[in-house]
Design a protein around this nucleic acid. Sequence first.
DNA 1: ATACCCGGTGAATCCTCAG
DNA 2: GCTGAGGATTCACCGGGTA
Lengths: 379, 379
Amino acid sequence: MGLIDTIARPRAKKAAEPAVQPVLPLDQILRGDCIERMKALPSNSIDMIFADPPYNLQLGGELYRPDGSHVDAVTDDWDKFDTFAAYDRFTRAWLKEARRILKDDGSLWVIGSYHNIFRVGAAVQDLGYWILNDIVWRKTNPMPNFRGTRFTNAHETLIWASKGEKAKYHFNYRAMKTLNDELQMRSDWEFPTCGGTERLKKNGTKVHPTQKPEALLYRILLACTEPGDVVLDPFFGTGTTGAVAKRLGRSWIGIDREGDYIEAAHERIEAALPLDESAIRTMMSPRTQPKVAFGVLVENAYLTPGTVLTDSKRRWRATIRADGSLLSDCGTIGSIHKLGSTLQNAPACNGWSFWHYESEKGLKPIDDLRQTYLLATTV
Amino acid sequence: MGLIDTIARPRAKKAAEPAVQPVLPLDQILRGDCIERMKALPSNSIDMIFADPPYNLQLGGELYRPDGSHVDAVTDDWDKFDTFAAYDRFTRAWLKEARRILKDDGSLWVIGSYHNIFRVGAAVQDLGYWILNDIVWRKTNPMPNFRGTRFTNAHETLIWASKGEKAKYHFNYRAMKTLNDELQMRSDWEFPTCGGTERLKKNGTKVHPTQKPEALLYRILLACTEPGDVVLDPFFGTGTTGAVAKRLGRSWIGIDREGDYIEAAHERIEAALPLDESAIRTMMSPRTQPKVAFGVLVENAYLTPGTVLTDSKRRWRATIRADGSLLSDCGTIGSIHKLGSTLQNAPACNGWSFWHYESEKGLKPIDDLRQTYLLATTV
DNA sequence: ATACCCGGTGAATCCTCAG
DNA sequence: GCTGAGGATTCACCGGGTA
């Protein structure tokens, strides 16, 4: 028996649904404006809605990497709105229609970044949805901040909401826990961005600027739907939602305005095959043990700025500074690794084993503190 | 390496500030409503604001419907719309005052969860702030979801914003990179929740329900302030912001309405020990180092007119002229930067890293000579 | 075959100061 | 306020070519 079969369970409300199902354009892509297209769909008919709306990025001029290459940004017309008010009107309009066609025990997923997610979230609440979780997609390979002006924008945010505060909703708790090595699935998920062979390309260039990874949709569909459920994506793009739905035995409906995207999505979904279970396990594998930066020990007061470290033979001394850099007695500054290699005139140095601190039991390598930190913070 | 460490750099706008500093109640806790208390503070006087506003609406009974009528939270039958509208009014009121008292190059930090952060974020944008990043605090030890009905709520969200789209702001990029083992600091941060000896307790029970970990504030203050800056926290609680500010040599102002919290905060901050001045220094950004013109290296005979420079792959050659300009083999003349960009047909070029000279140990970037010059001439 | 090197790229609100 | 010049700035991954 496959993993999917094992974890599936019938939706609780199945028996209470009307005997005559409304006619839905299942497994089809509807071309046109998503609000208009949703208006033509019957009320209370969709089990889950996944939406990846325009982010309204509001980018300035061109951006270049330090090596001089050009950054290919999202400059498409569909992402441009004149004002926040215009974006809000658009957002509330599609969210309102989405809520109407959603079954009473269905749920909504929306993904966004800080550019738009706060407006979307407020609209979700104002329209009567009830937020169940916000989920953070942590990217393993985000684009860096090339100018060194901000923190690396390394995540996107998803909102999961039921149709209302008292509404039932569907959550495969057991499946999520199984997929997370018997630990409750948390609200922070880690996936790479969509690239490699998964990324749709035509003539060597990407078909869609913001194609989402299939692993993200796998987890969402497994968490909130059952085989046979109907999933709607009003911003279908190149059809990640449809491809994953097909592989997992869910029905889907896509809406998009762009013919190029629709064509690519058709081809892609046509080629999609049911996924074997080992692939799912790979997609769902929990994150690996995180590295610990020396600065984290300073932030968490395992070591205090001003503390003096030495090597095991006390040949060199260095003082810890607030940002986790070290200042040697001769005035040189650097990270624990860099300063260790500089002082010894060695090509490299493992600062964790080189530098020691004075403990009650004598000189100890700072790596001991790292181990203590990991023990204290790892589940 | 090779970076010169001098005293902490002044904020860029220091010189442009009025000679007479407004009188601020530095290193004090103001008791009362944060909006009223902020109204008594002068405009453009605060370097950074950190706010941990209440997530729910138990704001001391100060709830009002959109029509202005009062809401009795205990007995009134207030619906969700009342709730959200009242929360929005409160949020916009304190954010507006906060923006007024913030310096033009100051920045705002707000922390929240999915219950309130979307409303806060939308208000931040509507009031003219410019969001710079949203930051995810990933908890290493979150409270599990006991009923198994949702994903473990394992994170909180912070918003970092400048005073406006065009406003300057202060970001210690280099210090953050150092703190993170020489990789750009990302938008997802991992800390344990506040517990153990750090958690303030009285008679065995926690003093404040949502005390934030000091490590979180440590990173924020290090990222966006300099020693001597003024940090305001309008929801001071048990004073985490004040305690960390004191440790890091920043001034602070706290506002809270609860006497119990204020008392606990006073004790706590009193006991906090400031770090040694040299320890709170951080790695300087090259941007703030004294500038060295290329011509100065020529004047001081670090390089001789007539010397030939090349790029690292020896694709291009150029001869140094007496005034510090370069003459390429094809006859083009320009500064080290200008000629580099012209030859590569690139929009920009950092001549310091692009051009190399022949040393005994092979090809070296001319930036090495600049570092040598800085070491030799700076105290 | 294998390892290494190099080029390409991803939802990005990405500079600062003098004149 | 605008313009132009100085000069500061990147991480993980993938694929293809080369040693």
